[in-house]
Simulated assay, not measured.
Amino acid sequence: MPKVTEAYREARRDEIIGAALRCFSTRGFQRTSMADIIAESGLSAGAIYGHFAGKKELFSAVATRILTARRSELQARRREGPPLSPGQVMATLIDGMRREPFSGVLIQLWAEAAIDKEMREPVHEVLAFVRETVRAAFAEWAAAEPGRVDSDPREWAARLTPVALGLMPGFMVQRAIAADFDEDAYLAMLAEALPH
């Protein structure tokens, strides 16, 4: 029997995550079954369960994929010039999320984590990943802008991060629910509302 390479395993995982993402975005987390994901992927149940223990683990992998892409965008933008201001950091993250075709999945993820203790741990891990990315970007900007903050840049960034991260769900929920929500105005206001 030929040996399966790690690259093949990763490609198969990505294929399964893609199928789960499509299912979650059209049916929602609660109404999506593992049978739906199996059918969408075109793979066998054994192929799916060989990579993921179940729907909750897949849901966490979907969120990780979306947020990892946002972190990569932030890092790419940072390489283009000086440290990004907090407003630029948040606008970059939120703009990337709104361009994600399956961004509504994140709203579902937050809601599930609020009521399901089993979902809370994997969501907390994803949130910790995003929180550290944002905190580091804020601290880098504060260190490059002496006198702009009232304390140590790392301490200041640690205090601002949870407040700024609250802007992401606010954007996503309003975008999903409010018919008159002006996405561009929201993103433009971030540069004014947060230190720049």
Results as ranks from 00 to 15, higher is better:
M1L: 09
P2A: 13
A11I: 05
R12P: 03
R12W: 02
R13Y: 05
E15A: 14
E15S: 13
I16S: 02
I16D: 02
I16K: 06
I17K: 01
A19T: 07
C23N: 03
F24S: 01
T26S: 14
R27P: 08
G28K: 04
R31E: 13
D36N: 07
D36Q: 04
I38Y: 00
E40W: 04
E40D: 07
L43M: 10
S44Y: 08
G46A: 08
A47M: 09
A47H: 05
H51F: 10
H51M: 11
F52K: 02
A53Y: 11
K56C: 11
F59S: 02
F59G: 06
A61V: 03
V62G: 03
I66R: 11
A69V: 05
E73H: 11
E73R: 09
L74K: 00
R78Q: 11
S85H: 03
P86W: 00
G87Y: 01
I94R: 06
P101Y: 03
P101N: 08
P101I: 05
F102D: 15
G104H: 08
G104F: 09
I107K: 04
Q108D: 05
L109V: 11
L109A: 15
W110F: 14
E112A: 13
E112H: 11
A114P: 00
A114E: 07
A114H: 01
I115V: 15
D116M: 03
E118K: 14
V126Q: 00
F129P: 08
R135W: 00
A136Y: 06
A139M: 10
E140I: 12
W141T: 08
A142P: 04
G147R: 04
V149E: 10
E155S: 10
E155A: 09
R159D: 14
R159F: 11
A164N: 07
L165I: 02
P169A: 09
P169L: 07
G170R: 09
F171E: 08
F171V: 05
M172N: 12
M172L: 14
M172A: 13
V173P: 04
Q174P: 06
A176Q: 04
A176H: 06
A178W: 13
F181D: 01
Y186W: 11
L187S: 00
L190C: 08
L190K: 03
L194H: 07
H196P: 15
